[in-house]
Every structure is written in C-alpha cells, then in structure tokens.
Amino acid sequence: MECHKCSRNSCHSKTQKNWFTSLFNFQSKSQSYTEVFSEIALVGMPNVGKSVLFNALTGIYATVSNYPGTTVEVARGKTQIGEHSFGVIDTPGMYSLLPITEEEKVARDLLMRKSVSLAIHVVEAKNLGRMLPLTFQLLEAGLPLILAINMMDEASRLKIKIDPLSLEEKLNIPVVKMSATQGIGIDQLKRRIVNYVK
C-alpha cells in the first residue's frame, strides 16, 4: 500500500502544476483531501456501457454505440458527489490485463501508471461469468475496486436474477446493480464511491 500513497502524491503535484486548470479549481485548495483521492477509472470489456456510465457521471458526451471498440482513446471528466469531486476516466474496452491490441494497451497502461484511486469494473449482467476473470485480475493487481453490474434491464427481460449481496461477500468488494441507460442504480453507485473513498 505504500506504493499507492507515493504515486498518489506524485499525481497530486502534477495536477497542481497545471496552472490553466487550476484557474478554475477554486475549491481544490480547501478540499485537498478529496483532491488527493480523486481519480476513478471505468474499466471493462468492450460494449458493456462504460461510456454511458461516463456520460451519466460527468455529463460529458462520449460517443456511445452498440458497437464494440467505439472508445479508442481515453476520455476524462469530473463528477460531483455531495461535496466531493472526482475525476472520471473512460477507458477503451479490455479483455484482460495482458493486452493483445493497441487499445487494450491504452487501458492497461492507464491503470499501471496513472494514480487511479478507484477502478469501477463495469460488467454485463447476462455475461457475468465471462467477465469475472477481469475482476479477479483487477483484484489481484491490488486496485481498489467496485463491481458495477450493468444492463440489469436486459437481464431481467431474459429472466436472469443476480444476488449482489452474496457476490459482494464472496469477492469482498462493493457490488452495484444498475442500468446506466435508464439511469437506474447511478445514485447507489455514487454513494458507494463516496463511502469507498472515505
């Protein structure tokens, strides 16, 4: 955990250096604590709804399609939850921490080198089993993690039920069910983010 702290600090000094954005961050000085723990990365396989969640959290439009590979580069935004503000990073889809293609490498490098204080692994409800291996890898890597099970609306149409509490118990991380396009579960996710970071 020592390692985490040190790179968090280094990132902090980086954000301070950027004079242009600091012009607009009047609050950041009084809330230096939340500034330090500020970056949240949305990760997951292609086409699970990371960009939709990014839109819902930040209000910034990132192109969303029902087509894998729509996000090729990293998008950044900010979200305000209560009195805390967080940076949000939308990453290209990845299948595992061992990248095969260039875009997966972009996402992995981000997790490796940027001081991400929290990763939200977005998974598709009906393909949970296929997506959990990445959750394991993120846990193995020691990243603080929340599992967001998205597209619950589609799953319930297929009569699939998921018990989030027992999954939470087994993985030992917060698990949130949601449907980002309908705006369901976003508030709960936000609450979990704040609790986690506190």
């Binding site: 949970l128 089993g129 296929r130 997506m131 959990l132 291996p133 959750t135 394991f136 890898q137 297929l158 009569k159 699939i160 039920k161 998921i162 018990d163 989030p164 027992s166 999954l167 087994k170 993985l171």
Partner: peptide
C-alpha cells in the same frame, strides 16, 4: 483457472430461468 472460478461464482449468484 480464472474462467473455472468465474463460472463457479456465477452459478452461485446467478439464477437463470
């Protein structure tokens, strides 16, 4: 190895009609 554990876990928490 990962897949096997994932499928086991899925079977425990997921109910499919």
């Amino acid at each position: 190895t990962r897949q096997k554990i994932a499928i086991d876990l899925e079977n425990q928490v997921l109910q499919e009609s």
